[in-house]
């Protein structure tokens, strides 16, 4: 949000399309994410030259090559750390980290959690396809227990991460989720990520049709998705289902699904979403893979907390008022003596 706003020149989608041929597999969910980004970015109010895309390694990490902005396709897992340096070096920039479940949560997990903790004002878009694509199909840290892949012929025995819970546990200040197939929703989430001052963490459920096709079938199949997705809206009761008649109710501290058409319940019994409430965010992140409960989509948590580079620059400004001087002053400070 600290990026310089412009009104003088309206940017277009084409301004963000680079001259590089896109090389993802035809039908990959990554295309949809690229398309939404190119659609939304002209309207974010940021000068084109101030956008920077930083990625690590993986299918998703090719993303910067396709955006005609500043971009840096770095090394496996390190995008978060490199982006931190970019932003602290120049807080004017609008910095976007493009990563995946392997890149950002496995090899780069340490950088992801520490970035969230510091709350540097950068945006993470994590493409979660629950598989390793670029290395051709091994299980990832978000693959479900028992997943049969090339490296787990008898099924994986690793319990997976839930990225939203991890981000929340890392004290992330903005945690949201969207789906590659929900284009309008994704646009909205990209805008919200940008608007948040602090680190934004946007998980995108992305279909890898080559190695993990249908991983989110229950959330994308028209026949069933309404029953499986809980669209979050701040201040609104958590209703879902094709007729919005099902709701999330707290039984003690256990979330359960109720039917408000049932005489026993009314909409007043349904939990109301509050983006600033950490407890609600914890519940929402937790119910992600719970059998019998829908998957929350939208902004789970958004809270303004101190931003790293703001504090950093404030310290620099304060130091400048408290102490003037340059290297020459330090060179000659302390005990010195002169030889004639």
């Amino acid at each position: 949000m600290s990026e310089t706003l412009i009104n003088t020149q309206q940017l277009k989608r084409s301004d963000f399309v680079s001259d590089q041929a896109v090389k993802w597999c035809p039908g990959c969910g990554d295309y949809a994410i690229l398309a939404q980004a190119q659609k939304v970015f002209p309207d974010l109010g940021v000068k084109k030259e101030n956008f920077v895309f930083i990625s690590g390694i993986g299918c998703s990490s090719r993303f910067p090559y396709y955006m005609d902005t500043y971009g840096f396709h770095t090394i496996h897992g390190r995008a978060a750390a490199i982006a931190s340096g970019v932003k602290v070096a120049n807080p004017e920039l609008s910095v976007w980290i493009i990563t995946g479940d392997g890149d950002g949560l496995s090899i780069g997990g340490n950088h992801t959690i520490h970035l969230l903790r510091r709350n540097i004002d950068v945006n993470i878009i994590l493409f979660n396809n629950r598989i390793y694509g670029l290395t051709k199909g091994q299980y990832s840290p978000t693959s479900e227990l028992g997943k049969v892949t090339k490296s787990t012929p008898l099924g994986s025995i690793d319990r997976p991460f839930n990225p939203a819970s991890l981000a929340l546990g890392s004290r992330g200040s903005f945690i949201a989720r969207t789906l590659d197939r929900e284009t309008k929703h994704m646009q909205e989430m990209i805008k919200r990520s940008h608007a948040h001052h602090g680190t934004s963490f946007l998980e995108v459920y992305q279909n890898c049709l080559i190695f993990n096709d249908g991983a989110f079938e229950n959330l994308t199949n028209r026949d069933v998705k309404e029953d499986n997705i809980l669209y979050l809206e701040d201040g609104q009761p958590m209703l879902f289902g094709s007729k919005k008649t099902k709701g999330i109710h707290l039984d003690g501290n256990v979330p359960v699904v109720i039917d408000i058409e049932d005489d026993k319940w009314s909409v007043d019994d349904v939990l109301v979403h509050d983006e600033k409430d950490f407890i609600i965010a914890s519940i929402l992140s937790h119910i992600t893979f719970q059998p019998g409960l829908p998957t929350p989509i939208g902004v789970m948590y958004a809270k303004d907390v101190p931003v790293y580079e703001d504090l950093h620059m404030a310290q620099i400004d304060k130091a400048k008022t408290n102490r003037q001087g340059s290297v020459s002053d330090i060179l000659t400070a302390g005990d010195t003596w002169t030889v004639e």
Binding site: T74, R78, A81, A83, G85, V86, H111, H114
Partner: peptide
């Protein structure tokens, strides 16, 4: 790793 990575990012910027 993050130490040098951040330095590389700062150099890029």
């Amino acid at each position: 790793i993050a130490g040098i990575a951040a330095a590389i990012g700062a150099a890029f910027a």
